[in-house]
Design a protein around this nucleic acid. Structure first.
Lengths: 255, 255
DNA sequence: CGGAGCATTGAGTTTCGTCAAGGGTTGTGG
DNA sequence: CCACAACCCTTGACGAAACTCAATGCTCCG
């Protein structure tokens, strides 16, 4: 496995009481699916914050679902310029591109300590052959990722620095709310485990300019920047600033 | 069907002699798959240049594969700012997001006269249930689209205007070469049916700045701008300017 | 013949990047 | 326990990149 700074463990959490099922956002499995998934899952994997989970160019034999923690997908140019493509949260499927297309063309790094379910790439055929509903779900997940990338592309291409920042933070806060602890209520502030460097590399801006832009949002009391992370205080107004409509998601599938 | 300025026709081309199979880039069907696809295809659809094929917000009952012609996917902000997300060429699957996730969140417009195969969205379940290999292909196609978006995101976020333009034109020329007429050889100039407005809206630049940037590429004799389109004269050097490695694709699936 | 769309160019302005410097916190090793 | 390095956030000054406004010529089409 191409992993830096992480540990490969045996299964700790049984799929039967998968913590993701406790969350509102996700749809449940049928007994049949549950039994297949339990069998499909070959292990569990934990990574420290900062660990590289998948690296560009690798031909990984594995596919992951995030159980706990945050991470991000990114690409780098030869001279070191980095672009963060998207964030991965609990429920995200990681490494699908590598599994289907052969080679990873982006890396995945942990933002916080993470726990991931490990699936074997070779058994994907089995999934498609014997569990069409799950195969459909995989495609669904891929289509959803595509939709998020579409949104992000619109943002980077056509929104101003202020709008972009507002969009990113609103979108992440919303994703966090849905996949996060259910005790977080709609109005409560959400904590995002990212630095301003991450924001800059996500939005295609310099760190300096990002800082000045975030300050404007903080001055309006929409966010507060902490130690090593961002507290989102008003998702609704952020979405308004961005000219973005909050999506409504429910019954979302995962593996 | 939510279509402007197009005609819905009965089937003209039998899947048996699908023109896409004649091209190097695509993989062939098994007889079994071929018979299913022939049955899955419910019609054929032609659109004029400039026609809107799918519109943001629509719940289309259809899914398409491009048989002939070029188009593009795009989103617009309230005030009219437009972002082109990706281009669709022969072999591209159109409308998957709408079919799986419910509602289209982007529009698709024809760039040239187009011909598309029409599939019925409701029969996708059947495809997943009875043809796992085709289901796998659909997912493969979605993962490939995701990869293209990743590249594009890197480009817009972190490449300079010159690099971006070079990347876009090289990538489109390469896609055109693979899906285009097989008589086009590797060294021959490729014609892209786009205007500078399209380039600008793809790269997140203004038309004026796009024009000045393209001029620099033209001055180096890498491209030539024509009437209503771009002639790409040197894909290799363009890719070098962009710091981009030309991908090698073969045996690509499609529906 | 007039209008619409496209490419082109120049001039002035805004946005954003680079450079530079300082302060705070964390973590590590002596 | 302290010194030091590494990382992160912040701010100001300056320069470069990109945008807007404006005007021109061209072709195609009704």
């Amino acid at each position: 496995m191409t992993v830096v700074n992480g540990n490969h463990c045996t299964i700790r959490t049984s799929c039967t009481d998968c913590p993701l099922h406790a969350l509102e956002g996700f749809r449940p499995f049928t007994p049949d699916q549950l039994s297949f998934i339990s069998h499909f899952k070959v292990g569990e994997f934990t990574a420290n914050a900062g660990a590289t989970i998948l690296v560009e160019g690798a031909h990984s034999a594995h596919l992951f679902t995030v159980l706990e923690g945050w991470g991000f997908r990114h690409k780098v140019l030869d001279d070191g310029r980095r672009q963060i493509l998207n964030y991965v949260l609990p429920g995200s499927l990681v490494g699908l591109q590598g599994s289907l297309l052969g080679e990873m063309q982006h890396s995945v790094e942990a933002l916080t300590p993470m726990t991931l379910c490990v699936f074997e790439r070779d058994r994907i055929d089995e999934l498609f052959r014997n569990h069409p509903a799950l195969a459909y779900d995989v495609t669904w997940i891929a289509a959803r990722e595509e939709r998020i990338l579409d949104e992000h592309l619109l943002s980077i291409g056509r929104r101003s620095a202020l709008e972009r920042s507002a969009y990113l933070l609103a979108a992440l806060a919303e994703r966090s709310r849905v996949t996060g602890q259910s005790k977080t209520k709609n109005g409560d502030p959400v904590h995002l485990p990212i630095t301003q460097v991450h924001v800059a590399d996500t939005l295609g801006l310099s760190v300096v300019h990002t800082n000045k832009t975030l300050r404007k949002l903080a001055d309006r009391n929409l966010i507060r920047w902490l130690d090593r992370g961002c507290e989102v205080r008003n998702v609704t107004t952020l979405a308004e600033v961005a000219g973005w409509e909050l999506p409504e998601e429910f019954g979302r599938p995962f593996l």
